[in-house]
Amino acid sequence: MIPIIDAHHHIWDLAANRHPWLQEEPPIPFRYGDYRALRRDYLPADYRRDAARQKVFATVYMEAEHDPADPLRETRWVHDIAAREGLPDAMAGAAFLDRADAAAVIRAQAAMPLVRSLRHKPKGVARPQDYDPAHRIPGSMRCPAWRAGYRHLADSGLHFELQAPWWHLPDALDLARDFPGTLIVLNHLGLPADRSPAGLAAWREAMARLSEAPNVRVKLSGCCVPGQPWAPALQAPVVLEAVRLFGAERCMVASNFPVDGLLASFDEVMGGMRAIIADLPEADQRRILYGTAAETYRIRTGDRLSP
């Protein structure tokens, strides 16, 4: 079994930290529907129990929408957890690019040993038919204030974690071209929730255009479809198309746990990913399962790849 670096997972302690979406009422609208099952602590022991059968040897923590008033508190907490528990090996922190403190927060995050990237989910429209590239929605990738904050990433050496639906990928392509010194890591395959022939064709076209930017990588993750079981037959069309477009050297697997645990087990997600890419050359499988993530998040593999 080829080892895995899980390039995107969360942990949280709801007694120690404030996560409004996990603690406040009413719950926010969520792409997977009812997420109340997530409103419990999820700590390294829980993650290790879920991942026990998949030979995960390193992980990357993704910011979990901690209290926006103090994004650095989440980062310090993750560093404390890593020092005690040996997990995660790297992390993506939070910054709010359209706020006045964006530059200061980016500098502070970059000074933390485990931080490799930052995420700020840009605003957008909820449906592809409402997308207009001429819009300058406040907080979007085309918002002047948001882009002013984004500009500071190049000096920090940090990557940007992009979570946006596929119809906003033209904005991401412009961002990648305007700021070629900043690596963009697209989360969750651009959220291809619509698996109809028309939906997949539109997603594929947007991904194909984005793949033209060399400073973009893709996480093969977060692709659960509400109401349908996680199965290789369901996910293979989007996973293999992303690999075809971007190449194995720009793709990496990730569990998105515990969030994807709402609809699938860790073994179903990661075992399914192994099954989907099983016919690719072994060198490509290794890139997807750990090599791209190790390079992207500067994780030293050392002797941890030994049988």
Rank of each mutant, 00 (worst) to 15 (best):
I106N: 03
L158I: 04
H66A: 14
Y290K: 04
P170Y: 04
Y32C: 02
L220F: 09
L22C: 07
H66D: 13
H10I: 07
D6G: 07
R76F: 14
A111Y: 13
P214E: 08
R84I: 10
W230L: 05
G181H: 09
E63T: 02
Y61W: 00
V225I: 12
T59M: 06
G222F: 02
P180A: 10
T182R: 05
R286N: 06
Q163L: 15
R119H: 13
A213Q: 08
Y61H: 02
A100Q: 13
F30R: 00
L262A: 11
L153K: 06
A110Y: 01
G199Y: 02
D132L: 14
E25A: 14
F160C: 05
M207V: 09
A283P: 03
P71V: 09
Y297P: 00
R53H: 14
V185K: 00
A293W: 00
L210Q: 02
H8T: 03
I288N: 04
L158H: 01
L118C: 08
W146Q: 08
A172C: 12
C143K: 00
D279E: 15
W21S: 09
P232N: 14
G149D: 06
T292G: 03
D67F: 08
I184S: 04
P88I: 12
Q129E: 15
Y297M: 08
F96T: 09
A45H: 07
A100S: 15
A37P: 02
W203I: 06
L153R: 06
G93S: 11
P26S: 11
I137F: 09
I106V: 14
R300I: 08
I28Y: 01
R84H: 08
G181L: 11
D98V: 15
L305A: 08
A148C: 10
P44I: 09
G261S: 11
R31D: 10
S117W: 03
E63R: 00
P138Y: 12
R209S: 08
P192Y: 05
P192F: 07
R209E: 10
P165A: 08
V225P: 00
P232I: 11
R107L: 15
L189A: 04
A100N: 13
P237S: 13
D171N: 12
D178Y: 09
A148E: 13
G199A: 12
A51W: 00
P88Y: 06
E249R: 11
P197Q: 09
F96I: 14
L169W: 01
M141D: 01
L305T: 05
A110C: 07
P3Y: 02
A103I: 10
A7W: 00
L153P: 05
P3I: 06
D178Q: 14
A52M: 12
R119C: 11
A126D: 11
R136C: 14
Y61F: 14
H168N: 11
F266E: 04
D70Y: 06
L118F: 07
A193W: 01
A94N: 01
F266T: 04
L289R: 02
A126M: 12
I288W: 00
K121N: 14
